[in-house]
Amino acid sequence: MSTETLEMPVAKPKEALLSKRRKKFITDPLNDDNPITIQVLGICSALAVTTQMKPTMVMAISVIFVLVFSNLLISVMRNLIPGRVRIIVQLAVVATLVTLVNEVLKAYAFDMYKELSVFIGLIITNCIVMGRLEAFALNNKPYDSALDGLGSGLGYSWIILAVAFFREIWGSGKVFGYPVFEAIGMDDFQANGLMVSPVGAFIVLGIIIWVQRTKTGYVEH
């Protein structure tokens, strides 16, 4: 090993594909720096689509796709974009990606497309996407930016899936459309209408934020 390093002293050692620094891009947003509970971004869709697990899953996948690729594309173009018009350029890139997602859903999953209706379109104005583009992709290399997008997307996904899980199991007694309570023999399960209504979403998310912040010890002043 030592002889090898002597042979090329000028070349920097190439960073591993998943070095410690890069792993942090993915793991940080999952807990300590979660986009929803800590940074307060992307709340709109977190609440609107979470009455059931299935549409939430589709939404999560769509957001991860848009985040990774918009981060990658903007990062590739970061030295070409003039500072003054960067918002318009970012919006154009994001809107194109979202249109792609929309068309794919329309073609292959029409029921989901109907159910999510305008909320797919609203990924364009999801603050997580714009936030990551502004804060990360404009100053970092493409691969790092894509990883950062993936991390933020996963952090967003697990929170909305958790909200959807509680709302669906209390609101209609099902998980992914499968009637859990009937399966274990509790036929007299009473669905809680509050959980299906918008109010339930706020309260469930409020409780998740409380638990999560108590665990990480984050206090807002």
Partner: peptide, 17 residues
């Protein structure tokens, strides 16, 4: 502590809703 800021705001918004 854990409820300060965003958490309590969520509950208030829910009640307003």
């Amino acid at each position: 502590d854990g409820l300060k800021g965003l958490g309590i705001t969520m509950f208030i918004t829910g009640l307003m809703g």
